[in-house]
């Protein structure tokens, strides 16, 4: 069976570095990774209201598209897309009444019962590609790069869609080791970055983001990897404000995990897209003599 790739809107606009690096890496690894030909925004946030089924329609429609394409798996790069799709999928698998309501509403589509499995790219790498394949393909091992593994919320919560059991997370560490980097665990690895509070209450978002960055520095990290454009916005794009507000004196380079993968595979700048990262992120790699 095929694997479909669901990109998500932000990866096509503001987070091209997350996508381009992944797509190029899959091509380099010779992995079939077919983007859905038609897809819509998944809605970004899973609606918790029990009777708010209209907000399940968007993610379910994307799952129908994957099914139509003949795939039994759909992979996402963005943590939020992952969360939204996975939770809608769970609902379609488990709640017969709501499934019927949603299928009836979407009467122009094929009925969906959870036929497709939603995977995050990290799980896809581990289970479908395999760490050994990755390790063998590495051309530029990221020797000595100490990287804080930031999971954030949406890869880990709630428990029933977590990409790994919370409290027993190894996947990001395994990934970093496979590409030769040194994973750094830190206490705030699954603390929320402030999410959309950055719009309504930026001060509060800066506080939590500060706590995360400080914790990573204290654990000895030189840089941080993550997999969500919103986390990246709060922790990297807004980092100048965060550092100032929390009186943190060191900048923290932030990368999408896919960018480090592409660099380790020896892919060029059109793949890695470090041009879209902060200045200090590029500097660190240069100082370490990595090809940027």
């Amino acid at each position: 069976m095929k694997v479909s790739y669901y990109p998500g809107c932000t990866l096509k606009t503001k987070a091209k570095n997350l996508e381009d690096a992944a797509v190029a890496s899959m091509a380099a690894l010779g992995v079939d990774f077919e983007e859905l030909t038609r897809w819509n925004c998944c809605g970004a946030v899973h609606s918790l209201a029990d009777d708010d089924l209209i907000h399940q329609v968007a993610p379910v429609r994307d799952l129908v598209r994957a099914m139509e394409q003949g795939s039994d798996k759909v992979v996402t790069l963005c943590s939020m897309c992952y969360n939204t799709l996975a939770r809608a999928n769970l609902l379609m698998r488990q709640d017969e009444v709501k499934r019927k309501t949603i299928n009836d509403f979407m009467n122009e589509e094929k009925d969906y019962h959870g036929e497709v499995e939603v995977l995050h790219f990290l799980n896809f790498l581990r289970d479908q590609v395999g760490w050994d394949t990755v390790r063998n393909a590495v051309k530029v091992p990221l020797n000595g790069l100490k990287v804080a593994m930031y999971y954030g919320c949406t890869l880990m919560r709630p428990r029933n869609v977590a990409i790994e059991p919370i409290g027993d997370t190894r996947i990001m560490g395994e990934f970093l080791e496979a590409i030769g980097a040194a994973p750094v665990d830190f206490p705030e690895a699954t603390t929320c970055c402030g999410s959309y509070q950055i719009l309504a209450n930026p001060e509060a978002a800066h506080d939590v983001s500060g706590r995360i960055l400080e914790s990573a520095i204290r654990a000895g990290a030189e840089a941080m990897v993550l997999s969500c454009p919103l986390c990246e916005f709060n922790l990297s794009k807004k980092q100048p404000e965060v550092l100032k507000k929390n009186k943190i004196s060191r900048e923290v380079p932030v990368y999408y995990f896919t960018q480090l993968l592409a660099m380790a595979l020896g892919l060029g700048q059109e793949a890695c897209r470090f041009d879209l990262n902060s200045e200090c992120s590029v500097e660190l790699l240069k100082n370490k003599n990595f090809p940027v």
Binding site: C41, V57, A58, M106, E108
Partner: peptide, 8 residues
């Protein structure tokens, strides 16, 4: 947009 597809 909530992808309801009513428009289509």
């Amino acid at each position: 947009c909530v992808a309801c597809n009513n428009c289509t």
